[in-house]
């Protein structure tokens, strides 16, 4: 049996550190000791698999998946689409992509969100899909609104959509947020600015994609996601004969 190969080391310069003082909640929720480096074994290079029996075909359409019959949510209609690739630039097919977001007014349908912008009766705010054989995914939704949050006294989140992606291995598991090109709140946001590398922030910014728009209907943004790549060689490193 071929032994599975391990995944490339995470580039810590791309990811936010655990302790980021301007994002105040990280103070008490960040480990103080360093993470202990673990050689990947079978439980790290494997992960859950999902199929079309797990989700429904309409789960990726946030314009309709919680709307009353014949109605749709208020807001700018968008297609949010892209590919899931790995660091070797290969597509990650048939992987689960889940999203959640505020409505066009910046309000989440969540019992803990008390922001004064109203709930939209036609908008749930979550969706999920599987990438196709080429790693491609798409959602229809409304562009989320900016909203204030309790951090410094006057912090506002830029418009964003939360993404959860699996890949093929538990060590690839990733949750992130997608922002929208041109939003002036991006450089002011303490959560965005937890990321030390400006290029990595650019990578979280969806680009206007005119070629994917549907004329007179829906505007489009493109957001590609890269998961950790995998070595071509096997991971046993004991010398022969020992």
């Amino acid at each position: 049996m071929t032994k599975p190969a391990e995944f490339y080391q995470r580039d810590t310069a791309r990811h936010p550190p655990a302790f980021t003082p301007d994002y105040k909640t990280s103070y008490a929720r960040s480990p103080r000791f360093s993470l202990i480096s673990l050689d990947q074994g079978v439980g790290e290079v494997t992960g859950p698999t999902f199929g079309h029996g797990d989700i429904d075909a309409g789960d990726n359409d946030l314009l309709s998946n919680y709307a009353q019959p014949g109605q749709s949510p208020i807001g700018e209609r968008i297609i949010l689409h892209g590919r899931v690739l790995d660091e070797n630039a290969r597509p990650v097919p048939h992987t689960l992509v889940e999203i959640w977001q505020a409505n066009a007014g910046g309000r989440y349908r969540h019992k803990n969100d008390r922001y004064l912008a109203p709930i939209d009766v036609n908008f749930g705010g979550c969706g999920r899909t599987l990438t196709d054989a080429e790693g491609y995914y798409h959602f229809r939704t409304v562009k989320p609104g900016a909203y204030p949050w309790r951090n410094r006294v006057n912090d506002w989140r830029p418009a964003h959509v939360h993404f959860s992606v699996f890949g093929t291995a538990f060590c690839q598991r990733l949750i992130t947020q997608c922002y929208f090109e041109g939003d002036p709140l991006i450089p002011r946001c303490p959560i965005v600015q937890t990321i030390p590398d400006p290029d990595a922030i650019t990578g979280l910014t969806a680009k206007l994609d005119m070629n994917a728009t549907i004329p007179l209907d829906t505007i489009a943004y493109r957001f590609d996601i890269v998961l950790r790549g995998r070595r071509a060689t096997l991971f046993e490193n004991r010398m022969e004969g020992t």
């Binding site: 936010p16 660091e87 989440y108 969540h110 979550c126 949750i175 979280l204 998961l227």
Partner: peptide, 23 residues
């Protein structure tokens, strides 16, 4: 090679996306 997409916090409303019944 491509670079891995940066992580961001799941935030306080992670349940909407991943456990909407609880939200």
């Amino acid at each position: 090679y491509l670079k891995e997409t940066a992580s961001q916090t799941a935030g306080p409303y992670v349940h909407i996306g991943l456990a909407p019944g609880a939200a």
